[in-house]
Structures are given as C-alpha cells and as structure tokens.
Design a protein around this nucleic acid. Structure first.
Lengths: 342, 342
DNA sequence: CTGAAAGCGCTTACAG
DNA sequence: CTGAAAGCGCTTACAG
C-alpha cells in the first residue's frame, strides 16, 4: 500500500532487437524462425541483441499471422468425479504437460462435464484457439469425438474411442496382452479357479482386458464360467462390491484378475471382510501399477501401464497430425509387476 | 486415407460480420465489448450477423491490441510426485478450471519441477503470455514467488507462502481453527493422551495445525508432551512411520490428530500393525476430507477443507488483482466431519 | 542474404 | 451513436 506500483513495462519487441542489432525486423524474424538465409554476422548480432534486450517473442502477434496458436488442449470429457479420483489421470496429465513443455507448447486444461461446458469448449476449440486436442475419455459414444472430427481438428485419444464411425487415432497400452500376461502368471502359480473383475464394458480397457482373460483361460483348456466374471466401474467401491458378488457366486475361486488397481484395492477389502487370506486363499492381480499399488495390503501384483510413454506418444502423434501427416495409432507394451498379492 | 481432407476454412472475421450487418467493423467491435454506445438497431443487426456467420472472436488479434492474454497459469512448483499423489491437488485443479471457465478464461497448466523448467516458465509467464498466476506450492522459500513478485505479476497462492519478504495474497482454509475443532472433539470424547502427526513444518498447514493442537491442549490444562508430536511429510508412508514412532515414544496415547487424510491412512495401517483398535484403543482424526477419507477402515473422522470455495476464491482474488485492485488474502472456515475413526 | 511492405484480426481514440 | 484510421507485434512473399 505504501509503495507505488510501477506499471509493468512493455516488453521489448522485434523492433527493439532490430535497432539494437542494426538490421531490419525481417532479418530478426528470420533468426527467430531458425536462422535460415541469414549471414553469420547478422545471426550473431541478432542473438546478442536478443540477449541484451531480454526479448521474448509475442505469441499473440505470431499466432495472428501464422494462424497457429502453438498451444494444445487437454480435454477431459469423463464425468468429472470419475477421472479426478483416478490416479492414472494425474500421471497422464503430468506426462503430457511435460512432453509439451519440451516443445514450448502450453497445455490448456478443459473439462467438459456439463452440456453447456461441452458447447462452450467445442466453440473455443474449433475456433482455432488451439492447434490440437489430447482427448481423455473412455466411455463410448462421446459427443465431442464427432464434433472434433467434423471440425477437422487434430485429435489423439488416450485409449481407443469406442462407438464412433470416425477413426480418431489413439495411444494405449496393450490391454489384451497385459491381461494375458497376468492370467498366465496366475495359472503358473497353480491357480485354476480364476475370476475377473472387469472395467465398464463400454470402455476399451474393460473389453480388451476381459478378452485377454478369456482367451488365456481357453488356451489353457479351462472352461468359461460366467460366475467368475463381474463387471466393475473402475472405482474402489465398485471393486469391493464386485468381489463380494464373486465370492457369493463362486466361493471356490482361488484367484481374481482385477482390471484396475483401484478396484483391486476394493477387492482386497472385500476379501478381508470375508476372511480370505491374500494370496494364500485368493491371489489378487491388478492393472495399472498406479501409485496405490505399492501401498495396498498386501502390496499388489499388477500390470504396469507405461504412462510416461503413453503421454509422450500422445504428444508426438498429435504434433505429427498438426504438421499434416497422416494419422497412426500406437499400442505400447505393458509389464508384469510381481509384488505380494499374487 | 481415401478421402481428401478439406483444408480447415478460415473462420469468419469481424469484417465478415460487419459486411453482413451492413455497418462498420468498429461498431461490431463495440458490440463485442458490451454494446455500449451502440444503437438498438445496430446491436440487433450485429448479433444476427454474428449468429449467421458463426463468428467467434480471434483472441490473438484481441490480445495483441489489449495487451492482455485473457488466460491464467496454474503453476505447480512442488516436487512433482508429492502433489500429483495428493488428492487435494485434483480438487483444487478442477475447481480452478471450472471457476475460470465461467469467465471464459483458459487455464494453462505449468509444472516447474526442475531448474530448467523454472527458468523457461518464468520467462514465459513474465513475458505477458498470461495475465496472472494461481500458485500452488506449500514449502517455504519458493524461488518462483520472488521472481513473480519482481515481475509485478498478479499472483494468488493456495495457502500462505512462507519465508518471503514479499506478501503474496493467498487463499487458505482456517488451519488453526480446524485443528482446534478436531482436538476439542477428541477431548470431548474423553481422550487425554492426544498425539499429533504434523505436516512438514516449513508449510503453513504444518505449522498452523500444530499450533491449533497445542493451543487447544493448553486451554484444556493438559501438558505439552514432546513424545506426542511427530512430523510427517503429507505422504501415506510418512504417516505410517510417524505413527510407529509415536507408539514407541508414547505407548499410552489414546488419540492422534493427523494433519492430512493421506497420512492418517498410513497411521491406521501402523495402528493395525501394532494391534491397536480404532477407535476403541486409539481415536484417529484426519485433515482434508479428501476422497480417501470415506474409504479408509474405519472411515475417517476429519476436518473438511472447502476446496470448491478455495478455488473459487483464488480465481476471484486473482481477477480483482488483474483488474488493478489491491491485494487481499482470504481465510475460509473448515468443517468437522465425524465418521467412525474417532 | 537482406530490406521494405503488406497483412494477420482486432480495439480504440478521434472526429463528426 | 458511428465510421475511418492508426496501430498492436509479428511473418513472409517479393524484389533486389
């Protein structure tokens, strides 16, 4: 209150740099673009002038002429609570932010929870305020997918978007093979009555992991018993409920493959409640290797999703899309992490 | 691959709207600014033209002349892993995103984990690419605080920044009173050997909650026993370790006030390990009322931080700062949530 | 390799 | 209340 607040000075412009370097603004700009067609002396003078003036490019001015925003939206379309409780979400968000930062591209976080938000965000995105979209949504029939597709927006999804005619490129872990690895491991430890708690069956992780489970049992010559399959919703409470249901339907189960760590944590609670020891009576395998996996009791044997690679690939694919290259999806291998629960 | 990709059409400009409405671009712009000094007929014609053309303002062009970016940075300066595991972080991030969205202001997520990131982000922010900063950092001596202060950047912190000469405005829950309410509650249930697991003592939540604990015991005429105080680090593992240490130092404790739910969850594990029943032998009180509080066993009695209000207030204060109003911090009341653990 | 100039899409005094 | 015009800070053909 006592000190006068000096107005923030206007930052130096390309004009200041040009004057300082004693050359034209066009040449300064050329240096900024990579220094092609610029003499070594000019290059040197400009760089010195930039350092001296503390020049930083004005992105608005640049964007106005290039018609690119050099920014990217990270768009959440899931019902809000779900994803904001999911430890995977944080890893993905952090990974994408970091990967983009390396290219000096800011990430705009957008949450399209309500219909109104969807409209506003749709308008914002399709008006050229971002160059592309990192799309996070797992449930099928997401209206944003169609909208973005029609607007010809470069989009890459996290996980294969289900229930669309459009073919949005995506990046995902190999859900099927991850599930197979886990079930093979459980079989290898002598388990024969292996149950599963799936993710929602309108999500790729729900479907593909269930298929991996089924195929592996079939290959081992084991029967498909409907009593051994329960659908969860990726929440802890959902995992607990599903486990309770499984114990009622198939009291003789000796293992359970759970399609997410969070649900597995809930399953552990249900098993404890039922007086089953883990892993002695029932082996429990999770999926994700999220931050909670090492903290469950017992610590969770699980399938690691390579979130660092997933987010890095999402950014890479999106940038290639923005550059006009044709789309391509990528599937990344998972890794079995053995701890105490199986 | 088979279909030709039509180039994205250039969006309509203010010029298209003006032509459509049969008036000048200046008047269109005035309508966009709120419609002051515009005749009802012109207003109507412009609005119709906007609808017809599907016009959306080009923010880059606008920012270029207004020298404002109409965007805000959400800046994380904590060692990355810490905050990305903290359930509070998600609530804060979601709340801020939603509150800003109502003003049509995008949130740019920035993570300043490494020294290099700090430098790059500092340059980005102080170059006018954002109008203000929502700062998340709890540990004292954060170098970004000084930097932003020198650059005269509008910034509001989540929680009082410690160890700075600058007086960055902040928004926080009433940590002291929240701790008092919990300890009073524990006293009210007859507990007399009440321990505490604090947050890091270079964070406001660490200090203020400890003070609230101490003051309440003193007011009740109880002695201050150093054996009843252990410092945690806001992590689950830290809570577990601290609880184990407390049990060794003060085996007769009958309650523990833990400065975060995550640490309380760890404390519950340690208590179970030690064969102490909760709440019969030891009452456990947490802090935050984060998403995990209802899922611990037993469910956690805790102090709710009003994250929705905190994030809404952070956005409000930041906007008033951007508008040139003088700074003001705000302290929000907490609420005691009684569940099963105490 | 370099400079002069046009233009990106807006806002905002300034006259009227 | 309205239009003409200047200008925000860049990039990019175009000549040379």
């Amino acid at each position: 209150m006592t000190e006068a607040t000096p107005a923030r000075r206007r930052p130096p412009t390309i004009h200041d740099v040009a004057r300082e370097a004693g050359i034209s603004r066009g040449t300064v700009s050329r240096v900024l673009q990579g220094g092609h067609n610029v003499s070594p002396e000019a290059l040197k003078a400009v760089n010195a002038a930039i350092r001296k003036t503390g020049y930083v490019v004005n992105r608005h001015a640049r964007s106005l002429v290039t018609q690119r925003s050099d920014s990217v939206a990270f768009l959440l379309t899931e019902p809000q609570t779900r994803f904001f409780e999911d430890p995977n979400f944080n890893q993905l968000l952090r990974g994408c932010t970091t990967a983009l930062a390396k290219h000096d591209i800011p990430l705009l976080l957008m949450i399209a929870g309500t219909e109104e938000e969807r409209r506003r965000i749709g308008r914002y995105i399709t008006s050229g305020h971002v160059d592309g979209v990192l799309l996070v949504s797992s449930h099928s029939g997401n209206p944003m997918v169609e909208l973005l597709d029609e607007a010809r927006m470069p989009v890459v999804a996290c996980g294969k978007p289900l229930g669309h005619t459009s073919t949005t490129p995506y990046v995902a872990a190999d859900d099927n093979e991850g599930a197979r690895a886990m079930v093979r491991y459980l079989l290898g430890t002598g388990r024969r009555r292996i149950a599963t708690i799936t993710g929602p069956l309108d999500t790729p992780g729900g479907v593909d992991r269930l298929n991996g489970y089924r195929e592996t049992l079939a290959e081992a010559g084991l029967p498909q018993d409907p009593a051994l399959v329960a659908e969860g919703d990726y929440s802890r409470a959902g995992g607990e409920a599903a486990m309770t249901a499984l114990l009622a339907a198939a009291p003789d189960l000796d293992a359970v493959f759970v399609a997410s760590d969070l649900m597995a944590d809930g399953a552990l609670a249900a098993l404890e409640q039922a007086g089953r020891r883990v892993p002695e009576d029932v082996a429990v395998g999770g999926f994700d290797d999220s931050t909670i996996a090492a903290n469950t009791r017992p610590a969770l044997t699980t399938v690691r999703q390579p979130w660092d690679r997933i987010s890095a690939e999402m950014v890479r694919v999106l940038q290639s899309l923005i550059a006009g290259e044709p789309p391509a999806s990528v599937i990344l291998p998972t890794e079995l992490i053995v701890r105490a629960s199986a």
